[in-house]
């Protein structure tokens, strides 16, 4: 059996959870196993996980799971994995998934990999690949313990609606007392958080000042994209720190990344070069970013961006 940890946020299964469910289903097919999704706490329609590939859905509905304590969550996941005789555990590669993976691996004395982007190759044991050095190399790792624990990098395998709803089976185990108490949670509302965004419009020092950001926000709105910025822009206070993408900011992997007025220092590229399609708009034809780009526009951003805005509006209205 393969267990996938079906993380939810206020009851909603996020994109990376659905991707992990589809991944677990595909891995199960490769290994002639079945795939069970584990829901901790109260979520909306756990049965819907069957649509994304789960053969079984287990739910441990307990009020304690409304408070995130990694030790309590890890014990529940590991205990249920043993109860259900699971040999592979899959986590979404989120802040929650990454906080749990190590704890669960230790509890189960299991080999683990965080952030794989490939299905296991079982022709010679159990091997998965992982991008390292900011995508400059790929390592193949072999997991040799009876139980294997891994997390799936977001946006590497699309979720697929191939199945149908399945009945939810209640499960339970003994829970330890929480060691960490969540006092309050504050989320930015109304926009897709950068780590989960499929489209990102990002701008840098070429913008000349914070007063010029309206056109970036407008472009993002038209595209349904999240806005981001380079480090110098965040450091000079032109934009909030949570928009900073790059090595010391947030690492992102959207389908579309549009970089406007960003030269493409290696530290910036390290955080964005796993994006599927990169568009670079810069007036300097020598900007290093063009080497990492799929599409490039050499020109004054104050002229190019309004033209792109117009072309996109035409596209979406037709």
């Amino acid at each position: 059996m393969i267990l996938v940890f079906a993380e939810h946020q206020n009851g909603i299964f996020k994109k990376n959870t659905l991707e992990a469910v589809t991944y677990a289903r595909k891995a199960a097919e490769l290994m002639n196993l079945s795939c069970g999704a584990l829901v901790l706490g109260n979520a909306n329609s756990p049965e819907s996980l069957g649509i994304y590939g789960a053969h079984k859905v287990w739910q441990f509905d307990d009020i304690h799971f409304s408070n995130f304590d990694s030790r309590m969550f890890a014990k529940a996941i590991a205990d249920i994995a043993i109860q259900q005789q699971c040999s592979v555990l899959v986590f979404p590669d989120s802040t929650t998934g990454k906080s749990l993976l190590g704890r669960v691996a230790i509890r189960l004395k299991a080999d683990s990999v965080s952030g794989t982007h490939t299905l296991p190759d079982c022709s010679n044991g159990f091997e998965v690949k992982k991008k390292i050095y900011s995508g400059k190399a790929i390592v193949t790792l072999s997991l040799n313990t009876d139980i294997k624990v891994l997390s799936l990098t977001g946006n590497s395998i699309p979720s697929e609606k191939t199945g149908s709803e399945v009945a939810v089976t209640p499960v339970t185990c003994e829970l330890p007392e929480a060691q960490v108490a969540v006092v309050e949670t504050n989320r930015v509302v109304g926009t897709v958080p950068l780590p989960e965004a499929e489209k990102v419009v990002s701008a840098g020092r070429g913008m000349k000042g914070p007063e010029n950001w309206e056109m970036i926000e407008k472009l993002a709105q038209t595209l349904g994209a999240t806005t981001a910025c380079s480090r110098p822009v965040a450091d000079s206070g032109w934009r909030p720190h949570h928009e900073h993408v790059g090595q010391t900011g947030i690492a992102i992997r959207p389908n579309l990344y549009i970089a406007i007025g960003i030269s493409g220092a290696i530290q910036h590229l390290a955080g964005v070069n796993n994006s599927k399609t990169i568009v670079v708009i810069n007036k300097d034809p020598e900007a290093p970013f063009f080497k990492a780009a799929d599409y490039g526009v050499v020109g004054d951003l104050f002229e190019v961006v309004p033209r792109l805005q117009e072309a996109l509006e035409d596209y979406y209205s037709s």
């Binding site: 080999d111 790929i138 193949t140 790792l141 780009a293 799929d294 599409y295 526009v297 996109l312």
Partner: peptide
């Protein structure tokens, strides 16, 4: 007694090179 083992390394396939689009033709980019 346990821990993931490195099997091998590889380098990613290089991007095929940037496709430049004239600054006055954003319809083409779209």
């Amino acid at each position: 007694s346990y821990g993931a083992q490195t099997v091998r390394y590889e380098l990613p396939t290089e991007k095929s090179g940037v496709h430049l689009i004239p600054a006055d033709d954003m319809k083409e980019l779209v």
